[in-house]
């Protein structure tokens, strides 16, 4: 009887701790991963012209996709009170 109670208590502890450990482990992983990414983003380097292969990719341009950016500007300008911030020119519309 005592042994059964001990097992139940141990099981309850296990089931209650396990998700917590999972959450902590996941959080730690995100934090570590996030820290690594933040470090990679913030470390300043003197980039030589022959090292700009990644920066020259389309996905690294502002904007990444001109068509998508143009459509976004139009949609959100039509549906929100604020606009601008990415450039000037291109004309207006009567949607807002």
């Amino acid at each position: 009887m005592l042994h059964s109670a001990y097992l139940v208590a141990k099981y309850q502890l296990f089931t209650s701790v396990k998700p917590m450990i999972r959450i902590i482990a996941l959080s730690a992983l995100i934090v570590v991963s996030g820290c690594g990414t933040v470090r990679n983003i913030t470390v300043k380097e003197d980039v030589k012209p022959w090292e700009k292969d990644i920066l020259a990719q389309r996905s690294m341009q502002f904007p990444q996709d001109a068509m998508q950016s143009y459509v976004d500007d139009h949609i959100f300008f039509s549906k929100e009170a604020s606009t601008g911030g990415q450039g000037v020119g291109g004309g207006g519309c009567g949607c807002n």
Binding site: K44, V47, K52, F62, G85
Partner: peptide, 25 residues
């Protein structure tokens, strides 16, 4: 309507580029 924008685009490192824009209308 008159719109003005001033911006800085800066290469941080080989894998990162950042941009800051100030806009006035």
């Amino acid at each position: 309507t008159t719109d003005l924008i001033a911006g800085v685009t800066k290469i941080i490192n080989r894998r990162t580029v950042a941009q800051l824009n100030l806009a006035f209308g």
